[in-house]
């Protein structure tokens, strides 16, 4: 039986030391057994390594930054669609997801499918809403308070034990061992990312993560837990190993079951010495290490494409425990003519 051939666009080609998930997603797509692919890279910047990796990416188009707005993005995607007839699109950046979620209906009409969470799911799992989210769904989340001024910190800090975690709305985290430090972090982080700031209980333990996919009806189509073995100075996993952990799988199924999560997600947990699992974050996309799920026997990346194509997708019921990923970097040699082409025409 001949396999279908899909043209799939993928963002997040920035396979750098704090990598985007795009190249991992592309490798998953290339490993898919149920279909063949032509890969269209979508890049924001002209030095994203994936642009130049022609054995993995067939053609790359630059797309406007999320801050340019949906209309501009849609125009560009329509142009790319005319050239390439896209069947599916995998957005991979947090910052771009909102726009793609909003455009889902329009793109679907044009035949470009995606599997994404809804706006409500996307908003509800946001850092500043997570504590409430956990309470509603019976999942442990470190207690957090929103603060708007250094005086607010003084007011709420009594109900926490030191150290506390001081978190920005989007990025940046600091650990404070006293009120003064917390206020210092407040100033530094709020100057960069605005208000509110979160004061969060510090949870001691080991960080464990799950890469999973949901079908939007409450079923977990796949889930693979992983522990980081080596972390770079930017806090990114450079190596990790799949774990046998029934509790993690059960919590993951509970999250996906309760929220009817649609699409990929990464759950970040802190496992305490008492074996309690605190949910720290929900990332509404594949993590950069998602190729490990393929290596462990769950090509979650392939499953979502089939789900979008209306195929019957069976949930994975197992994966190989003890599979490692070890990231590596290499220097590509690139001619300036290629750099010139992507920089001046926006295509390569």
């Amino acid at each position: 039986m001949s396999k279908p051939r899909y043209t799939i666009a993928v963002t997040g080609l920035n396979a750098i030391d704090s990598p985007g998930p795009g190249m991992a997603v592309i490798r998953g797509l290339r490993d898919a057994e149920s279909f063949d692919v032509r890969i269209i890279g979508l890049s924001y910047e002209n030095l994203e390594p994936g642009i130049y990796m022609h054995d993995l990416v067939d053609k790359t188009y630059q797309v406007p930054y999320p801050s340019e707005g949906q209309e501009v993005l849609l125009n560009r995607l329509e142009y790319i669609h005319r050239q390439e007839q896209l069947d599916f699109l995998y957005p991979n950046f947090d910052a771009e997801l909102f726009n793609f979620i909003k455009l889902e209906g329009v793109l679907a009409q044009k035949g470009i499918r995606m599997v994404l969470p809804t706006v409500d799911q996307f908003e509800a799992r946001h850092k500043i809403n997570l504590y409430k989210y956990g309470k509603e769904h019976g999942i442990l989340v470190p207690r957090a308070e929103m603060v708007f001024s250094p005086a607010d910190i003084a007011r709420v800090i009594g109900s926490f034990e030191f150290p506390v975690v001081v978190k920005g709305k989007y990025y940046d985290t600091g650990i404070a061992y006293n009120l003064q430090q917390a206020q210092q972090h407040f100033h530094k982080i709020s100057a960069k990312w605005g208000l509110p700031i979160l004061i969060q209980a510090f949870v001691h333990g080991t960080e464990v993560n799950v890469c999973a996919i949901g079908d939007g009806k409450g079923t977990t189509l796949g889930a693979v837990p992983m522990r980081k073995l080596y972390i770079t100075d930017k806090g990114k996993a450079w190596a990790g190993i799949t774990l046998d952990d029934e509790n993690l799988l059960e919590i993951t199924q509970r999250v996906i079951g309760a929220t009817h999560w649609r699409g990929p997600l990464e759950l970040e947990f802190m496992k305490t010495t008492e074996d309690a699992y605190y949910l720290l974050e929900i990332n509404p996309r594949f993590p950069a290490w998602c190729y490990l799920t393929v290596g462990a026997g769950q090509n979650q990346i392939e499953s979502l494409v089939n789900l979008a194509m209306g195929k019957e997708v069976q949930p994975f019921d197992s994966y190989e425990v003890g599979k490692l990923f070890i990231r590596y970097s290499e220097d590509m040699i690139v001619n300036i003519s290629e750099f010139e082409q992507i920089s001046t025409t926006g295509e390569l």
Partner: peptide, 14 residues
């Protein structure tokens, strides 16, 4: 270049 791209070989800037 015809596309209006200029490479400065002694600084590496474009």
């Amino acid at each position: 270049s015809e596309s209006g791209f200029i490479f400065h070989p002694s600084t590496g800037d474009s």
